[in-house]
Amino acid sequence: MVLVNGIVVMFLAGGFFFTLVGTIGLLRFPDFYTRLHATGKCDTLGEGLIIVGLMIYHLFHYSETLLVPAKLLFLILFIFIANPTATHAIMKAAYLTGIKPWKLGEERR
């Protein structure tokens, strides 16, 4: 059980790390497009890792029902489809609105 809990903690910590990096990137990056790079990618993997951790925890501590891990698995699947699609939609909206991309050497906005 200690081993299982250790693995779960590792997954949760990994998810926490990537979500944190996404937030730092949102604050540090210079313009709209590069900020989307940070949030769009790190959130996907961060949430995925957290949910995998929860799945392992549930499998070993409440092994009588497999339904909850299966539902969590579908949650990961839907996040992995929806997150890049939403990122792309926001990106396209910004591009069509005419926001100029930041180039190397310019002031941050």
Binding site: F18, V21, G22, I24, G25, F29, H37, A38, K41
Partner: peptide, 13 residues
């Protein structure tokens, strides 16, 4: 995806 996140994390930090 994992490589992408490590890459972004490197650029952010």
């Amino acid at each position: 995806i994992v490589l992408a996140n490590i890459d972004v994390a490197y650029r952010v930090l």
